[in-house]
Simulated scan of single mutants.
Amino acid sequence: MRRFTRTLVAAALTATVVAGTAGWASGNSQQPVTGAPVGTTAWRADGLPDPERMTPAQTAAYFGSLSLRRQQELAAAHPSVVGNLDGAPLTLRYAANARTAGARFPGRQVLAYDPRGRGQAVLVFGDLAKAAHVAVIVPGSDIDAANLAPLTRKATALREATGGRTAVVAWAGYTTPVGVGVDAATGELAEAGAGRLTRFAEGLAAVGAAEPSLFCHSYGSVVCGLAAHEIAAKDLVVLGSPGMRAENAAALGTTARVWAAKDPTDWIDRVPYVEVAGLGHGADPAAPEFGARRIDAEDARGHDGYFAPGTASLRTFAAIAEGDVR
């Protein structure tokens, strides 16, 4: 009976979304990529500390105990591990990922790269180590290592809107849904993504980066909602959200300021804000009763227009990232 209920709800949610969107197709089921980085078996065989048993703070302490030469030796011998270790020195991770992903992302600062599945990648715009302000953009469906352009455009737009003062992270560090389907209506991928996002944020703290502001788009807001109670962040901004798996802002369990934006032409408003038998993501974060601070998005267009240059939403995002909004 439970399976039958889930199937009915999934069909209703999918039909509602597809009917209200321009040409979106049903999604294919995805398996979340989690666990230790590629190459961990060889790393362990060399007698090195198990990445799955170290917190980012412990990772930072371990690398801090090594000479620069030894750090560089490890990055050369085990680039796919070092490049994905939250808490390892930033410059070392950039160098390691230049070895594994340089051909894919020439000239980019790649903070993480995982080729498994559809591929995951984390790109940094600006000086993450020295910037007084850090913004992390968490994307929704269809973003992966082979389709980063929509995400990097958002990151570039936000950085430019802050006058280049904020370091912006394009965090495609989890397995996103493909299209609109059961994956997008359920929380499995978001739960896996929340764990990875939490560890990433802990890694930022471990290397002394500024406490981030999170900008969570579409299904990415489900990820942020599930991670909110564990992440130290200044601000939690959701845009085009299908829900955060919380009934209100207080239920997120975060000390961050919670903001929400939804423009009047966004098809996400046609998605039922319900959670039944594990399907759907609950209350609308942009509704007054949710308790988030509302961001003007009247001049944004569609589901993907919140970071468009010249929009009120982008100006507000920049002010939030810079700490200019009280």
Rank of each mutant, 00 (worst) to 15 (best):
A286M: 05
A201H: 07
P37H: 03
R257H: 11
A60K: 15
R118T: 15
L85Y: 08
V9N: 14
R159W: 02
A261M: 05
G47V: 09
L148K: 04
R294Y: 03
A145I: 06
P272Q: 13
S313M: 00
P285E: 10
G179D: 06
V110Y: 02
A19C: 14
F125V: 12
A112H: 04
T156E: 12
Q58K: 14
A77N: 13
L252P: 00
P51R: 13
R315H: 07
G87Q: 07
R99L: 12
F307S: 04
S213T: 14
A206M: 09
R165T: 12
K234T: 11
I137W: 02
R53A: 14
R165C: 00
S241H: 07
A260D: 12
E230A: 13
D50Y: 08
L236N: 08
L74I: 14
K262Y: 03
I295F: 04
F290I: 10
A161L: 07
A11R: 15
V33I: 11
Y113N: 08
G193V: 02
H133W: 01
E298R: 12
E160R: 14
A161S: 05
D299C: 02
G220L: 01
G20R: 15
R301H: 14
V138R: 10
V276K: 02
G117S: 12
A45R: 13
R326K: 08
I320L: 07
